[in-house]
Every structure is written in structure tokens, then in C-alpha cells.
């Protein structure tokens, strides 16, 4: 299928997902245009993380359709590797490879998976390290870095693949409060550069600032969505209002 930039880059339609008996997603639909930043918020267990893990096929879905640049993800013949080259992901627990330095963590996938030239990749990797403000930490091992630093390496590692879309799965949830800011700054700069981002987050202030569109999930459904201003100030659904009143 041919995809053109005027169509949604990610198009999720009526997605159902169950883990055994437990139905986590009960018909979720949303569209993300190129360059858009969307935030998914909602109480724990509402299926936010599951939803974005479906986008790069870390979780499979039982029903519905997920198109990423026109490519159907819910397809048994899907080339997962091709999909994942386009979709980067950053995790709550960073998941850096502890036996490799920061620079090696960033360089490894482009060199080994995409078979890119090693010396050019290194130049690019060093640029990325600069971009996430970690100059001087190139040769540090993950164990020697703080949580915030590790998470920024993880972002750089994902960016090294030159993805079209970035998924952020509660990337600040495991961080000390004082290092949350540095990671959010990095993501904000990324959003300003025009990267298409889907974020699952609990940082409401941040969501309000960077998101083009906010989705609120509860019980496996999208209860309400809208641009940040309308969403935060004029929420209609009582569940959204209750959630926001608890958080804000």
C-alpha cells in the first residue's frame, strides 16, 4: 500500500487486545499525523502501555487494524524487523545493554542491524550524544550513569536508527524527580524538530506543553480526547474530570 504524508502516519482502528481472559483494549481508535505529538494519559491498568507496544508489534492484537505508514501491523506475514526500523521505542526501565558503553549502545543497532558504515555511524552517534547533552559520557557504561543519563542514552540509541516515529512508554516514571526535567527537555527538543511522537506519560504539565493532541484512556477505551487546552480546561467526561482533579 502506498502511504503519502497527508495520510495518518499511524492509524489505529478498533483495536482489541486481551491477555488470556483479561481484556485490556476494547476497541481503541486514534490517528497520528506526521510531525504530530500525542500524549496518552490515564490511570494505571487502562491499557496505555499495551496500546503503544502494539504499534511496534511487541504485543500482538486480536482484532482491529494498526497501519504504520500504510503497513498493516495486524498481519501474520508482517515483517516485524522492517516495521521496527521505522518505529523507535524508549522504555520506562531504559533497558540499555549493560555490557556496552553509551557510544556502543547507540552504534550497535545501526551497524549490526542496518549494516551502516561504522565510522559514519560513529560520527552520527557522537552528534546524538551531543544532542542529548551527554558529551564526555561516550565511554561510560550504563551502570556508571544516573537514571536520567541512561534514559537519554536510550533515546539517542533509538534515534540512531533514524526512525520515523518514536514511542515513549512512561519514560520518566522510574526517574528521580530532579532528573525528570532533563529527559523531558530532550523529548521536547525532539518534538520541536518535527519528530512524530506517541507518549504515554503521567507528566501532565509536560503533556499540556508539548502535545498536539491528548488521549485519555480508562478501562481499555479512549474516553476523551482533544487538544491540550480544551482537554485540560473543558473536559466533558466525568471520569476524565475525576482523574484530572486527582492528578492536578
Amino acid at each position: 500500500m502506498n502511504w503519502t504524508p497527508d495520510q495518518p502516519m499511524v492509524s489505529i482502528k478498533n483495536v482489541h487486545k486481551a491477555f488470556g481472559e483479561l481484556e485490556v483494549l476494547k476497541g481503541v481508535s486514534l490517528d497520528v499525523m506526521k510531525g504530530e505529538v500525542i500524549c496518552i494519559i490515564g490511570p494505571s491498568g487502562s491499557g496505555k502501555s499495551t496500546l503503544i507496544r502494539c504499534v511496534n508489534a511487541l504485543n500482538d492484537i486480536q482484532q482491529g487494524s494498526i497501519l504504520v505508514e500504510g503497513q498493516e501491523v495486524n498481519d501474520p506475514d508482517l515483517d516485524k524487523l522492517e516495521l521496527r526500523k521505522k518505529v523507535g521505542m524508549v522504555f520506562q526501565q531504559y533497558n540499555l545493554f549493560p555490557h556496552k558503553t553509551a557510544l556502543e549502545n547507540i552504534m550497535m543497532a545501526p551497524v549490526r542491524v542496518l549494516k551502516r558504515d561504522k565510522s559514519q555511524t560513529e560520527v552520527f552517534a557522537r552528534e546524538l550524544i551531543k544532542k542529548v547533552r551527554l558529551q564526555g559520557k561516550e565511554d561510560s557504561y550504563p551502570g556508571e550513569l544516573s537514571g536520567g543519563q541512561q534514559q537519554r542514552v536510550a533515546i539517542a540509541r533509538s534515534l540512531a536508527m533514524k526512525p520515523d516515529i518514536m514511542l515513549f512508554d512512561e519514560v520518566t516514571a522510574a526517574l528521580d524527580p530532579e532528573t525528570v526535567g532533563e529527559v523531558l527537555t530532550t523529548i521536547k527538543e525532539l518534538a520541536e524538530d518535527g519528530m512524530t511522537c506517541i507518549l504515554v506519560t503521567h507528566e501532565m504539565g509536560f503533556a499540556r506543553e508539548v502535545a498536539d493532541h491528548i488521549y485519555f484512556t480508562d478501562g481499555g477505551l479512549i474516553v476523551e480526547h482533544g487538544p491540550p487546552k480544551t482537554f485540560f480546561d473543558k473536559a466533558k467526561d466525568p471520569r476524565t474530570r475525576e482523574f484530572l482533579s486527582q492528578i492536578l
Binding site: 511496534n56 511487541l58 516485524k80 524487523l81 522492517e82 521496527r84 526500523k85 518505529v87 523507535g88 521505542m89 522504555f91 526501565q93 533497558n95 540499555l96 545493554f97 543497532a109 542491524v113 542496518l114 536510550a154 540509541r157 533509538s158 536508527m161
Partner: peptide, 10 residues
Amino acid sequence: GQWEAAESLA
């Protein structure tokens, strides 16, 4: 998470 990170990097 090590497997997942590697998977998501293709």
C-alpha cells in the same frame, strides 16, 4: 527488558 529493547531495535 533486554529482549524487548533489542526487539524494538529490529
